[in-house]
Amino acid sequence: MIPTLAGRLQTRLLLFLFIGIPITLLYAWALLDFHWGWREIQIFVWFLCTITGLGLLLDPVYIFIQTTRWDRDWPFAYQFFFSWVEFGIVFFIARAGLIPYLPEFAFQGMRGLGIASLHFALVFIPSFLALLGPLQTIFIRWRFKGGQLGKM
């Protein structure tokens, strides 16, 4: 669906900045009953940064797999699936306390899983929908540049 490496990286960063961060701030703020507590909010921000960072590391792998396919492309469904895999990896590593800047207590129990999953779903769904076409209404050359921004 995004068939070049540069396109994947750029699109991922774009969605992170313009969809991920604002939604994360809003979500965390709402969870704190609209009280601005940066100590808590920053956990959400760092969590999202970590998922995005892992995604950026995995993008070359996805691109490599794509090149082994004749169309050098893969279904939207795969991207959907792998995004949740990325979330899962970061969540369970954080729960095990292996990420120093993410306090492990925030990810414990059903409550921890629920808060994190809802957070990711709120960020992921609009980002994914944007890929299905709406991005093209703003960046008309995006689809011909394999997901890269800017001029042809």
Binding site: P3, T4, T67, W70, D71, R72, D73, R143, F144, K145, G146
Partner: peptide, 16 residues
């Protein structure tokens, strides 16, 4: 093949 060229000929790495 779904279309008359591999899909990345339209906007992917093969186009470039």
């Amino acid at each position: 093949q779904p279309f008359n060229w591999p899909k990345s000929c339209w906007g992917g790495d093969l186009r470039v």
